[in-house]
Design a protein around this nucleic acid. Structure first.
Length: 574
RNA sequence: GCGCCCGUAGCUCAGUCGGAUAGAGCAUCAGCCUUCUAAGCUGAGGGUCGCUGGUUCGAUUCCAGCCGGGCGCACCA
């Protein structure tokens, strides 16, 4: 796994030390453990620490401390790379890197720009992320919003680390729910035409149904007093479906979520794909008939029991279409399938992974990302949602109230598997308490430096031209170290399919930036008599200003890149 | 009953391919703030990492068993 420039140089040095020691016969192990370098918790433990000596202890059959000593003695370019090299207690090798090395990070960021942090973990492998996939029977609600945020972030994140990614929406436009939806709209339509009609018992009763019916009436025209043509209900259902899907697309667009592909469940039935897939399973002996139904033998692949795919009444189950759908995904040649599901569907995972195995793939070919419920609050008070009365909060309402950026940020703040508290009031606050604001403001703050600098005719320096050696202050180096960790954050987030790690990182980076900004001057103060009261004023030479501006530029770039991966804008002004 | 997820500071949560004295934000408390680059700043207190065993030089992290919460166990989607 590639890391930041500095981490790579240090890892190379450590590897050199290990190989050197091996050649001298001081170490005998063949395979070195992974040379991961972590930033230690305490500053006195240096910039980077390695636990490699302790990992080698058992295979070398020597105390870790001795091994650490051997490694340290064999470190190549020790004088050029390290300020301080220390071995601590069990066998930690604590390394303090020369400031000059850290300064390289800023050049790296400048050279890479929006590509800083990206990697090639994926090596072009093809991944499909399927998300949202709500029934087109109603507007998207908050839960879909979280799923949408997570899905689109995964798409961007996996792209950033070198995968070829497609985001897809599976439209559940077949089956019972669609029929009920159509019948409900049709009933409202008839009512609008002055005829008496009843919405089915278990149909849809929300106010939006009437709204859809009204639009349809506008298209079809009323049919007052006349008996409905036989196909009127079908036409009504088809229009209702189009209306609803159109609204869903609009909502997703205003949320800044774009799908490369929309896949219709109904098309699987029309193309006979469902039958074909069952035939395939049958020929493989994975289908059995019992009690007048057809069962997929998912238990052969670790599912707790077999599952019905065709019911006694001859109807296919949802699973049958889902098998055909995932079969289709596999045919399309993806190396990895990611499904983003509501957490209540977790019991479904083993049977879908059984499908992977039924087609000769490892079950890991399908990875399911679960998304837990969102609890909406307003000023700390829970916003009650009752799905039964149809008065749930829609995604649209949330976006309208807090904006797409804030909504995405909040949705991505926590591990998607855990319940999320989302305070709508907090999300719109312009204060440090609001994490979205806090992070975006850090970016805007730096942008305002450029405006002020331009007004005063202060040049905008390039990292390769500026003298970065003046960046030796602990606060400066602390910021640079944080910036250097960004590539690894991206990669670990992607590997774990956990975008929330980036959100967390950005908050930490923003905190460092604000602290720095409050404590140190970057541009020279206006006026001459700036000898403030007590305390030594920091000397601010033009060189220092230039170097700090380069540092600020680096912070700006990383915040920008991090937010971009989450699908959130980085405003220049707020 | 079986299965999956979660259990970390008062609250909301990070962190675990096993590493050093477990972190952040909010809240609380204590100071500072005649202000500019933009919407205050600095610090403090606060913990048996659910419990008990096991593996290990070392466990919040891995394993087992419990406890608590959520969800799932359909010829629904």
């Amino acid at each position: 796994m590639s890391q930041g420039v500095v981490q790579e140089m240090v890892a190379t040095a450590l590897l050199g030390a290990l190989n050197g020691a091996k050649q001298k016969g001081q170490l005998k192990t063949d395979a070195w453990p992974a040379l991961t370098l972590d930033a230690p918790k305490r500053p006195e433990w240096g910039d980077l620490a390695s636990t490699v000596a302790m990992s080698l202890a058992s295979s070398e059959q020597r105390p870790p401390y001795d091994i650490a000593q051997i490694i340290v003695d064999n470190l190549p370019r020790r004088e050029q790379l390290f300020e301080r090299v220390e071995i601590v207690r069990p066998g930690f090798v604590n390394l303090t890197v020369k400031p000059a090395l850290w300064q390289e990070v800023l050049k790296e960021i400048e050279a890479s720009g929006t590509a800083y942090g990206t990697a090639d973990l994926g090596r072009g492998r093809r991944v499909q992320v399927e998300y949202v996939s709500a029934n087109p029977t109603g507007p998207l609600h908050v839960g879909h919003g979280r799923g949408a945020a997570v899905g689109q972030a995964l798409v961007r994140l996996l792209k950033a680390v070198g995968y070829d990614v497609t985001g897809e929406y599976y439209i559940n436009d077949a089956g019972r729910q669609m029929k009920l939806f159509g019948a409900s709209v049709y009933a409202r339509y008839l009512e609008l035409c002055g005829q008496s009609a009843a919405v089915p018992e278990d149909g849809y009763h929300g106010a939006y149904i009437t709204a859809v019916a009204e639009r349809i009436k506008g298209k079809l025209g009323g049919a007052p007093g006349h008996p409905a043509p036989a196909d009127l209900e079908d036409r009504c259902r088809a229009l209702a479906y189009q209306e609803m899907l159109g609204l869903i697309r609009e909502d997703l667009t205003s949320f800044g979520v774009e799908f490369q592909s929309w896949f219709s469940e109904a098309s699987l039935h029309e193309s006979q794909a469902v039958e074909q897939v069952l035939d395939e399973l049958k020929s493989r002996g994975l289908l059995l008939e019992q009690d007048g139904a057809l069962w997929f033998r998912s238990s052969a692949f670790g599912d707790e029991k077999d599952r019905v795919v065709k019911k006694q009444d001859g109807e296919y189950t949802y699973l049958a279409a889902d098998i055909a759908y995932h079969r289709d995904k596999l045919r399309r040649g993806y190396d990895l399938l990611i499904d983003v599901w509501g957490a209540d569907h977790h019991g479904y995972i083993p049977r879908m992974q059984a499908v992977m195995q039924a087609y000769g793939h490892p079950k890991e070919r399908l990875h399911v990302v679960l998304v837990q419920l969102v609890k909406l609050l307003r000023g700390g008070v829970e916003v009650k949602m009752s799905k039964r009365t149809g008065s749930f909060i829609t995604m649209r309402e949330v976006i309208d109230e807090v904006g797409a950026d804030a909504a995405k940020f909040f949705f991505l703040m926590r591990d998607s598997r855990t319940h999320l508290d989302f305070d709508l009031e907090l999300a719109t606050q312009r204060s440090a308490d609001n994490p979205v604001y806090y992070v975006q403001y850090a970016h805007a703050r730096i942008c305002s430096l450029w405006r002020v600098a331009a007004e005063r005719g202060i040049p905008r320096p390039l990292a390769i031209e500026a003298d970065l050696s003046v960046l030796t202050d602990p606060d400066e180096l602390g910021l640079i170290r944080k910036l250097s960790a960004f590539p690894e954050i991206l990669q670990t987030s992607a590997a774990a399919f956990e975008p929330h790690r980036i959100t967390y990182y950005l908050q930490q980076l923003a905190a460092l930036l604000h602290t720095f900004y409050n404590k140190h001057r970057i541009l020279p103060a206006m006026g001459d008599q700036e000898q403030s009261d007590a305390g030594p004023t920091e000397e601010l030479t033009p060189d220092k200003t230039a170097a700090r501006l380069v540092l600020m530029r680096g912070v700006q770039q990383v915040i920008h890149n991090g937010l971009a991966v989450l699908g959130i804008s980085a405003p220049e002004k707020m």
